[in-house]
Design a protein around this nucleic acid. Sequence first.
RNA 1: UGGGGUGUCGCCAAGUGGUAAGGCAGCGGCCUUUGGAGCCGCCAUUCCCAGGUUCGAAUCCUGGCACCCCAGCCA
Length: 567
Amino acid sequence: METNKNPEDLKTNAEPPVRKNFIREIVDDDLKTNKFEGRVHTRFPPEPNGYLHIGHAKSICLNFGLARDYKGFCNLRFDDTNPSKEEQEYVDSIEHDVRWLGFDWENRLYYASDYFDQLHEYAVQLIKKGKAYVCDLNADQVREHRGTLTEPGKDSPYRNRSVEENLDLFERMRKGEFPDGSRTLRAKIDMASPNLNMRDSVMYRVLRSTHHRTGDTWCIYPMYDWAHGQSDSIERITHSICTLEFEDHRPLYDWFVEQLGIYHPQQIEFARLNITYTVMSKRKLLQLVEEKRVKGWDDPRMPTISGLRRRGFTPESIRLFADRIGISKSESTVDVALLEDCLRDDLNKRSRRVMAVLHPIKLVIENYPDGVVEELDAVNNPEDATMGSRKVPFSKVLYIEQDDFREDPPKKYFRLSPGVEVRLRYAYIIKCVGVVKDEKTGEIVELRCTYDAETRSGSPQSARKVKGTIHWVSASHALDAEVRLYDRLFKVENPGGDDWRDHINPSALEVLKQCKVEPSLSNTTLQDRYQFERLGYFCVDDDSSGGSLVFNRTVTLRDTWARIEKA
RNA sequence: UGGGGUGUCGCCAAGUGGUAAGGCAGCGGCCUUUGGAGCCGCCAUUCCCAGGUUCGAAUCCUGGCACCCCAGCCA
């Protein structure tokens, strides 16, 4: 007897097996040795000075994914220690993006600024221990004393002040008695350390700037190195995951918690994400926005979460991508084709299919009766029968894609050309019997065809084979639409260097105003996603309103013909 | 040439001394009323290089080489 498939294969929505990586190995070991009493507690710590991008998504999926898989927790913590660059707008967008990606921090929303009092208290402790001092050197002087990569630094002349003096000075810094930049509180470590981070790292600077949460309460603000580890400790984070460039900050991270004698989280570093044909630094993305090279943080050309969302990406596709790229410590640049594959993989399964003509050309079926309209059945998604079907109106005058007709077809061209038959999807087989051209320009303005009435889809004769199938839209029923075609933001794989902006792809956005879409799209809503058959995946842009429809092309379908023709 | 890292297929990435997973890309083929989707097959005798240890090395040792990060009162 024929047996059924393994029951495992019949499971739906089965989570893909969790990919192994070096961080999970560390967590597994820590669990075995009971290093953190069997807890797993991570955090995602963005600075609210810009919008999140897909590189952050990698980190979000890592941190929240770890918490999910190990039955632990992941906090959302804003690293808001530099009020001169941070804004509430960014806080709001970050929260929105993390939620949209499908993660939930529940009641664990924190800010480094929540800990300003505690951090100040810790700093006083270090001063009392003789491990921190107030330094009167200005920024330039500090730099001069720091030494270089190959030469040790020199001690600050203020390094050996008494505890009492340091306490007094630090208190007066806090009260605002000294001008911005005039003094700092520094850790007293080792000016000769080969690790520059250990050369008496600055803990506090005097900075008069209104903080988005604490307002003008403070005029001294903690530096990243001082705030981050202590915040992790306060939240009892177990694994503090950050990117590679913080690797040589780890000794300092460890030094602070050890001097304080407080709970000690473990910092682990991994390689940040790079993707071909785009840029991923907040600085560059900010420049693109400020220099108006794109329309905003959510421009669909941007690799920001909000840009990808507006472009039509699904959170599922981004999570799938995060799973597939893996986690490691080697610097890498992922081929954007992988991202696109994850996108198509998800969109293929979920998108309703619909017919739309982007570059219309009129087609008249000479032997089809005037005034007759047939309602033809069209499947909504061949991948998912539960999505049902719809009716599409068919009549004598249609629009088809300019690309789907060639007066002089090359080899292997399966579409319409004079004397050749093609199937109109869900409708009839037609043959081209004439071409009408503009007398002056010679441009083709209309195609004359005949149809074979026996070949209507679903009828017995419809089985007749023809080389190609093309999509169409009934001229009198079609809706007008604007379609925005997006492509990669840069012309080169790795837009680096000072001239990176010179590589911006001017054709990354092409706007089509004369598109025709099937009438079932009349009651669509913002963000709805569709597959325009044979063309790609599209979503309804936020600029759509009332009567006007605007679609964004999320990604094209894989196009083997384009490849053949190119070769 | 101080310190910290990384080098496994075009791009990611497993591999943890027992004889190189997987995905993407690419290339063939099947199937198809989307040139879509799906399916099948091919795609690293070799792991940056050179020595060494071992019955056996991508994994251990020694010595090189290449690339990345660090001299913000940014994070």
